[in-house]
Simulated assay, not measured.
Amino acid sequence: MQGTLVPGEPLYEIHLADRLGMSRTPIREAMKLLTRDGYLQQLPSRGYAVPLRSLEDLREFFELREVLEASATRYAALRATAAEIAELERLCQRYEREKNDAKWAQFGHDFHSVLIKAARNSRLEVMLNSLNAQIVLSRRTVAQADAVRRQAAVRDHRAIFEAVKARDETRAQTLAAEHVRRSYETTLRAYVPDAFSIRQSA
């Protein structure tokens, strides 16, 4: 998750066992679990690697995130406690003021985590946490959002918060879906900026 292992880097049980100072059995089981959850891929040589994500992978990730996160936000509007709503407001305020990119991104992540928790659906929470982790891994090497898209994200978070606070489940769900679509476009702009330049000049 910290980016220590780069996409495509091969990983082998024996090397990891030596590095971590443990037997190969727990390493083998961990690798199987990480492969099952999409964090690693198995190689023909019996090793593993951090996956190289394609644009098709990103599309699938964001399509699934749009459906799941919009639903979670709807349920949050129905079920969030007063304490969770207060926490969402606090995170909104810090998100709006933060200048440091890394801290700003963390506040955004924390905002979504509180929403997902407030949905009160443990299975949905597990699925979204895994999915969002894979999205972070997939785009960690691309550029940060520029000032325009950063402000759009700030507005999105504020609007989502206000809908949840008002218990407007339909609006909360719609806003969350739109926010995920904008996040996907920001990611695509970083991956294939030339395609967007062509679109704008056409």
Score class of each variant (00 low, 15 high):
residue 102 A to V: 08
residue 105 A to H: 04
residue 108 G to N: 06
residue 108 G to D: 00
residue 108 G to E: 01
residue 109 H to A: 12
residue 109 H to Y: 15
residue 109 H to K: 15
residue 110 D to C: 06
residue 111 F to N: 01
residue 114 V to S: 02
residue 114 V to A: 01
residue 116 I to G: 02
residue 119 A to Y: 02
residue 119 A to D: 08
residue 122 S to E: 13
residue 122 S to I: 14
residue 124 L to N: 07
residue 125 E to Y: 05
residue 126 V to K: 13
residue 127 M to W: 06
residue 128 L to C: 06
residue 128 L to R: 03
residue 130 S to C: 12
residue 131 L to I: 05
residue 132 N to E: 12
residue 135 I to A: 06
residue 136 V to A: 15
residue 136 V to W: 13
residue 137 L to T: 07
residue 137 L to E: 10
residue 139 R to P: 01
residue 139 R to M: 11
residue 141 T to Q: 11
residue 142 V to Q: 09
residue 143 A to V: 08
residue 143 A to Y: 03
residue 144 Q to F: 12
residue 144 Q to E: 09
residue 146 D to W: 03
residue 147 A to K: 14
residue 148 V to T: 10
residue 151 Q to A: 11
residue 152 A to Q: 15
residue 154 V to E: 05
residue 156 D to N: 12
residue 158 R to H: 10
residue 158 R to F: 06
residue 161 F to L: 05
residue 162 E to P: 00
residue 162 E to G: 05
residue 163 A to N: 03
residue 166 A to H: 06
residue 167 R to W: 04
residue 168 D to V: 01
residue 169 E to N: 13
residue 169 E to S: 14
residue 169 E to V: 10
residue 170 T to N: 12
residue 171 R to Q: 15
residue 174 T to N: 14
residue 174 T to C: 09
residue 175 L to W: 07
residue 175 L to D: 00
residue 176 A to T: 00
residue 178 E to F: 10
residue 181 R to A: 11
residue 181 R to C: 07
residue 182 R to T: 04
residue 183 S to Q: 09
residue 185 E to G: 02
residue 185 E to W: 04
residue 186 T to G: 10
residue 186 T to V: 14
residue 187 T to K: 02
residue 187 T to R: 01
residue 191 Y to G: 00
residue 191 Y to K: 09
residue 194 D to N: 10
residue 195 A to S: 13
residue 197 S to Y: 13
